[in-house]
Amino acid sequence: MRMETQLLVERYRDNLFAVAFHVCENAADADDVVQDTFLCYHTSTREFDSEEHIKAWLIRAAIHRAVNVTRSWWRRRSVPLEEYVQTLAFPSDRDQALFQAVMGLPEKYRVVIHLFYYEDYSVREIAEILHTTQSNVKVRLSRARGMLKTILKEDWSDDE
């Protein structure tokens, strides 16, 4: 099956931006990744099993592109993360603390944490998206949770 690109943009634009931001730590680069990922979908002829299949493909494509952007010499890292955070309207200081704690994690932990807690993917689904093993995902999740618990203390529950 295929879906209209415009419909996918309306539904998943912010999802792709968020996951790309977790890799790039930069809104300009994340916007470029979103743009290019949807263009890639639009110009491909690939068939999918379901909308969830398309979403997982888009997220995986966005992660790959974001990683490429961060490895490029010419990346557009124009605004430091700290400055960008100040432009965001967090519901509370605790939300901002959580945001900054997650963005302070190593990249490979940030992405796994985001796919689990924000996108609600299972360990198996995350392993498929990242082309890695379920045990690797479990290790990254465990270490990331431990780091967040150390930083956030009572604001982060033990939920393993």
Partner: peptide, 16 residues
């Protein structure tokens, strides 16, 4: 829950 807290914190991110 952690999941609810996480989603609330990161719902501030929007494509520009």
């Amino acid at each position: 829950t952690n999941k609810e807290r996480y989603r609330r914190a990161f719902s501030t991110l929007h494509a520009s």
